[in-house]
Design a protein around this nucleic acid. Sequence first.
DNA 1: TTTAAATAGTATTTTACATGCATGTTTGTG
DNA 2: CACAAACATGCATGTAAAATACTATTTAAA
Lengths: 148, 148
Amino acid sequence: MHLTRFTDYSLRVLIYLAVKGEERSTITEIAETFDISRNHLMKVVQELGHKGYITAIRGKNGGLLLNRTPESIGLGQLVRDMEHELSLVECFRDHNDCIITPACRLKPILNEALAAFLAVLDDYTLADMLGQRQPHLARLMQIPTAEK
Amino acid sequence: MHLTRFTDYSLRVLIYLAVKGEERSTITEIAETFDISRNHLMKVVQELGHKGYITAIRGKNGGLLLNRTPESIGLGQLVRDMEHELSLVECFRDHNDCIITPACRLKPILNEALAAFLAVLDDYTLADMLGQRQPHLARLMQIPTAEK
DNA sequence: TTTAAATAGTATTTTACATGCATGTTTGTG
DNA sequence: CACAAACATGCATGTAAAATACTATTTAAA
């Protein structure tokens, strides 16, 4: 059971932007910080933009900004938005060949478990991901601290 | 987020054996019933045997039997046993390059969510998967009903 | 001793995911 | 206006995990 890197990278982007604060960040900068594929990151950013989490400003001196406060970004919603396939087993999907589905209690049980999983994440926001640790995170990501 | 077919098939095998009851079932029979790869099913059965869920009897007239009562087979344990990789994101794995791990709260939060997921499954057993539906399941799997 | 079954190991194929590349579009700056 | 810096988009390719296939071996009943 895995989340995709897509979701993982989404979280990293949001953390980065939150720590960076007012200042714009670029995709290149984030890709280099985490040493991950710039191309892949572009698509992550694109979708984060479409879903309203961030604002992407084109053109020279463009970049990315958080579009919502860290407190308002729930992790449950984020996972639901970014993890495209939340179908745990075959009988969750459109194409299902399992012959016992009509009588099988597996799907409702797994649905309940999935709901519990997401409910925990609903208790946390991006702000909780930072907490007191913002300075430590800033150091790790080599973001010059805001106070200048 | 998916469970592997390996885990899915494990559940199907256990359901089949539970409905079949005292009588032995063969891998071929189960593979044909669900129209899935016999070869893949072999490995599932092998591991279910190693983990003590079922007994495999070799030789002519051999076959498979449940080794424990349906009531004693918890779904949480089954998923923990059969789903080899329960590492949700990179920072759960041995090889982790994410530079913010030391300050990042993601891992503990996801761990809590995973625990909630498994806790729900711990509330159910193989017996709950059958319930009153045993006759319906038997029909769907084309198992002649026990009373003869 | 033949046959039907599980067991085991290896190889191949599939597929979702990730990555790369080329090109387009937008926008600030000189 | 031209350029450069940034995101946007579509298509092609790579890759690793999972699934499947193949082949041989072991076991035990008839």
